[in-house]
Design a protein around this nucleic acid. Structure first.
Lengths: 187, 187
DNA sequence: CGCCCTGTCCGTACTAGTCGGTACAGTCTC
DNA sequence: GAGACTGTACCGACTAGTACGGACAGGGCG
């Protein structure tokens, strides 16, 4: 694997582990097995490399979600499968995690990919919810846009709770609660 | 106001604005109008002061929530009021915000007050939900514990979304979606 | 009363270490 | 040999923290 690729991957990992301000260029170079010069050859600086890493992480999240949501099964089944699967991919919160660093929020280059990833996922959720309504699986009183935003928020909030308690079960609890609300409406 | 108090308040503000790793003791002292020596006189160090600030923030959040949830109105009305009110208190996410710093998560002294605040709020939500079920406002098919976790997650996730997009309306959207699901079940 | 002593409180000046970044010379490939 | 690439050495700024000395009260004593 070439150095540039290794740098991006190392940055992805470190953004998840330590956040943006907590990650030094030195640490990235060390993990990537690269020297000081090579990083500044491939990227203009820390922010530039972080932007590349965030774009890639966001694309991964979007792609993974799309794969499940456009797959087989009824709309509600696909939604349930995707939400359930998120609990196995705790690293998915890598995206939401970024929104807490003021330096990230202040820099459009860094905030944009995160925001776009959320909008992308939210739109896919909304589409599946609308499908479920059309199929009669959910009542037409729900607003797919609104509920889609709620589901994205539950996943991101679930990560927050799980990190605070150190217990991944708190994530599952929040997601299961949301699914039970949907199932309650379906019945 | 005495210096110690000013230091705690300054730390609360800065934790919210810049996070834990992004906040230097100097910045806290400057904002509090105190000198270097006085901070290290009152507190053993940055982590000690941050722990005091977090405990206070967590207590504020719990107290504010309790006030609304044990107030007047039907259970569902109180719940709606509290969730709606959170959107006006965007600084409420000061608590959830902390869970993103690895240094905070690693230090029990810092993580504990955050975790306890969440558990406190979740328990109050669960109590009100159980009340609503008992009053016939919600079907007894819902699990108050589970749904309470979902509501806390929606609020925290809403903050994440709003920060990512820079648009507070995204917070309101997520919360309104959750409320619409509850109302759907009530009907 | 003046006097000193003692502990609390606070500001200045310093430390070693790390931050993000640059300069530059060497190496490797075509 | 030219250009892409990489490693070493350095930079000023900032990090968390310490050392230390001075201001200021209250209290016991002549």
């Amino acid at each position: 694997m070439d150095t540039r690729e290794r740098l991006v991957e190392a940055m992805q990992d470190l953004l998840w582990e330590r956040g943006y301000v907590g990650t030094s260029p030195r640490a990235v170079q060390e993990r990537a097995g690269a020297g000081q010069g090579s990083m500044y050859h491939h990227f203009r600086g820390k922010a530039d490399l972080a932007a590349a890493a965030l774009e890639r992480t966001a694309r991964d999240l979007g792609g993974r979600t799309e794969e499940v949501l456009t797959g087989a099964g009824s709309p509600l089944e696909r939604l349930t499968l995707n939400l359930t699967r998120e609990r196995d991919v705790l690293r998915g919160c890598r995206v939401g995690r970024m929104t807490q660093d003021p330096e990230v929020v202040a820099d459009d280059k860094l905030r944009a990919p995160v925001d776009e990833a959320f909008r992308w996922v939210r739109r896919m959720y909304a589409d599946v919810l609308a499908e479920a309504v059309a199929a009669g699986e959910l009542p037409d009183t729900i607003d797919p846009q609104q509920v889609a935003a709620t589901l994205v928020a539950v996943v991101q909030g679930g990560y927050v709770l799980a990190r605070a308690s150190g217990n991944p079960a708190d994530f599952a609890l929040a997601v299961d609660g949301a699914l039970s609300l949907l199932r309650g409406l379906a019945a």
